[in-house]
C-alpha cells in the first residue's frame, strides 16, 4: 500500500488521467489561440495548461510530472514569457510607441487577425502556465523537505 502510495493514486485515477490529460492540455492551447476572438485568452489558457501538469502530478506523483516538465524548464519558460511580452511591446518602438500593434489587423473574428494580440496571448500563457506550475512545485517540494527532517 505504502509503495503504491508513493507512486501516485489508484489505477482508476491513473487511467482516467492518462485519457484526459492530453485533452486538458489541448483545450488550454485552444483557449490561448482563440483568446482574441472569444472569451478567454492568455491568462485563462495558461491556467488550464498549468492545471494539466498539476493533474499529472497529483495522479502519478511528482517524479513523472517533473520528468515531463522539470523545475528549471518551468522557471526558464516563465522568464521567457515575460521577456517575449516585453520584446513584442518594445518592437512597437520601431513604429513610434510602446505597445504598437505593428502587424496587419486582418479580418475580425478570424483566427489570424488582431495583429500582435495573439502573440501577447502566447507570451502570457507561457508566463502564467509555467509560473503557476512553478508555484505548485515549489510548495510541494518544500513540504517534502521539511518532512524529511
Amino acid at each position: 500500500m505504502s509503495k503504491e502510495h508513493e507512486q501516485g493514486m489508484s489505477l482508476i485515477v491513473k487511467t482516467i488521467t492518462r485519457l484526459t490529460v492530453g485533452l486538458i492540455l489541448l483545450y488550454g492551447i485552444y483557449i490561448v489561440s482563440h483568446g482574441h476572438v472569444s472569451p478567454g485568452g492568455g491568462f485563462a489558457g495558461g491556467v488550464i495548461i498549468a492545471l494539466s501538469f498539476v493533474h499529472l502530478m497529483l495522479a502519478y506523483g511528482k517524479e513523472v510530472a517533473l520528468s515531463k516538465l522539470p523545475k528549471q524548464a518551468s522557471s526558464f519558460f516563465e522568464s521567457m514569457g515575460a521577456i517575449m511580452f516585453l520584446a513584442i511591446a518594445l518592437l512597437g518602438f520601431t513604429g513610434g510607441y510602446f505597445f504598437l500593434n505593428f502587424l496587419s489587423k486582418g479580418e475580425p473574428f478570424k483566427l489570424f487577425s488582431a495583429g500582435v494580440i495573439p502573440l501577447y496571448n502566447i507570451a502570457i500563457s507561457l508566463k502564467v502556465g509555467a509560473g503557476l506550475f512553478a508555484i505548485f512545485v515549489a510548495l510541494v517540494l518544500l513540504k517534502f523537505e521539511s518532512e524529511k527532517k
Partner: peptide, 13 residues
C-alpha cells in the same frame, strides 16, 4: 518601468 523589468527577467534566465 521596462528597463528594470527586462533586467529582472534577464537575470532570472
Amino acid at each position: 518601468v521596462v528597463l528594470p523589468l527586462a533586467g529582472a527577467f534577464l537575470v532570472s534566465i
